[in-house]
Each structure stands twice: as C-alpha cells, then as structure tokens.
C-alpha cells in the first residue's frame, strides 16, 4: 500500500501553469479575432469594395455637375477663395483648395487664373489611389473618403493640375475666414490625409434632397459660385439644357485645361479677351 504525501495532495493544481497559459492565450486570441471580424479590418463594413460601390447612394447619374469660369469677367477679388476656405473650413492659406492667381496671355493680356479641382471624368488621381479613397461619383464629382486615405500622396503626384493638398498638421486654430455669424459646413480634415475641392458636394447633395437646383438655388450651389460678385463662375447640371451652365456653354466658346491629356475635366474656361479690343 502506498501512502500519499499530504503536501503533494495539497499543492496539486486543478490547472497547471501551462494549461492556464493555453486557455488564456486561446481566449485572448478568440477575443482579438472576433473583434477583427466584427468591427475591425476583417468586418463586412471594412471590406466594402472601392469607388462608388463602397459609397452607395452618393450622387446620381441623372445629373452631371459642371462649372464654367469666365476668365474675362474675373476681377481677382479673391471672394471665391475666401468663401471656399470659410465653408470648407480651410484655415491655412497654404492648404487652399481653390486658387486664384495673376496670369498673362502670350499677347500680354493680364488676367486672373482660377483653379479649383477640375473633377476629371478620367481622373488620374482616382486610378492611382491604392485604397480607392478617391473616386468619381455617378454625378461626376471626384470625391474623397478621408477615413480611408493612407496619405501616400500618389494622387498628388498623378494630378496634372496640382489641385490636391496634403494635411501637414492637426490644425485647431480658429479659421480667420469664417465670419462670426456663420459656421463651416464640413468638418476639418485630420492630419496625414490628402484633401481637395469637392465642388461643395455637401451643398449639392443636401440641395438635391430638398428639391433645390444646384447652380440656381444659392444654398445648393458651391460657395465660390455664390460668392463671386461679378458672376464669373457658373455652375449646374449639363444634363439639364435649361441649367445656367448648359446655357452658358451653348453661348460661349470655352476650353478645358490640358484637354489633350484625356482627363475630361468638368471645369470649362472662357478665354480672357485682349483689353481694349
């Protein structure tokens, strides 16, 4: 007959240390895995495709938004630039989405060049983005998903018009272009993403939803168009022959920037006339 050592009996564990580690490790692993699958990078929401399919319901093919800029009318007052900065909350001048600058024709005629995003139908920036953070919506607007952008800046390299800006720092400074009686209409972007002019897409979407006509009704029209005191910017739906932009394009000879590159931009320009002519 063998006698049991009482000490051994007392200390015999239900779970050994290695059992504990195995169970603990497996539980932790299962918790992490389920977190990844439920709400992390492996969740159905995260694996959502690219472009328009990842953003259903945004924009409709019924409309095609275009802008015309009459360079002959522009007086370089910069109201459009400031309005853009106020509405889209762009406090830093070096981040401007909408740029106006003095230029000269070959014959010496001076004018103010306007350069918002050209919203190309065949956008080079869209093709190169590795995560589909930028895409052409069914209504032709080149949109950005700031939560998806990884900040590689490949789109900036690809853009032939230099319209994109990288967000260098977290800016919590007040926006000097915002009037005391108003608020920015879109949230400020985080550090480390690329941002650009959106044709004030939030105004267009809200306006269409409310039955307004972008380009005609001011609350549904891009801020730069609304702010222009001389009517140098015209906006609207080119699928609607009665829209301001359709009428304007029918009545004027226009050109688009770098049209020969096949980018199909949606901003049309009227060439400035020689002064005194």
């Amino acid at each position: 007959m063998t006698s049991k050592n009482p000490k051994e009996e007392k200390t015999a564990p239900i779970l050994t240390r290695s059992d504990f580690l195995k169970i603990g490790g497996a539980t932790l692993g299962a918790a992490i895995l389920s977190e990844l699958v439920i709400s992390g990078p492996f969740s159905p929401e995260a694996i959502q495709g690219i472009g328009a399919e990842a953003h259903p319901g945004q924009g409709s093919e019924e409309h095609q938004w275009h802008m015309a800029i009459d360079l002959d009318r522009c007086i370089g007052c910069m109201y459009c630039v400031r309005a853009c900065q106020a509405v889209n909350d762009v406090p830093d001048d070096n981040m401007r989405w909408n740029v106006v600058f003095p230029e000269q024709l070959e014959d010496g005629t001076e004018f103010f060049m306007n350069r918002p995003c050209q919203h190309c139908q065949e956008a080079p920036c869209v093709r190169v983005c590795p995560v589909g953070a930028t895409w052409v919506r069914p209504d032709g607007i080149v949109a950005m998903d700031y939560d998806r952008c990884i900040g590689c800046r490949y789109c900036q390299v690809a853009c032939p018009y230099d319209v994109r800006r990288f967000n260098w720092r977290t800016s919590d400074a007040p926006n000097p272009y915002q009037p005391t009686w108003g608020n920015a209409e879109v949230p400020r972007r985080p550090r480390g993403v690329v941002e650009k002019c959106t044709f004030c897409v939030h105004r267009i979407d809200r306006g269409v939803e409310q039955g307004l006509k972008p380009g005609v009704d001011r609350p549904a029209t891009p801020a730069c168009v609304v702010a222009c005191p001389v009517g140098a910017r015209i906006f609207g739906d080119i699928r609607d022959p009665e829209s301001p932009v359709s009428k304007f394009l029918a009545e004027n000879t226009t050109f688009r920037l770098r049209e020969d590159w096949g980018t199909e931009p949606k901003v049309h320009y009227v060439r400035p006339r020689k002064k005194g002519a």
Partner: peptide
Amino acid sequence: LDNGHLFRIWKVYLQGNPFSLLFQMV
C-alpha cells in the same frame, strides 16, 4: 514612414484598388 497614415496600411489589403500600381506593389 512617408505615408500620412502608416497604420491604415491594412486597407491596401482589404479595401484596395487592384488597378493602382501601389496596390500591386504592396
């Protein structure tokens, strides 16, 4: 380190645009 959001790199695997050269390179 050149990327603005280094820790979003997983998006290239799970939300990638296969037509981007950068996607193909990753």
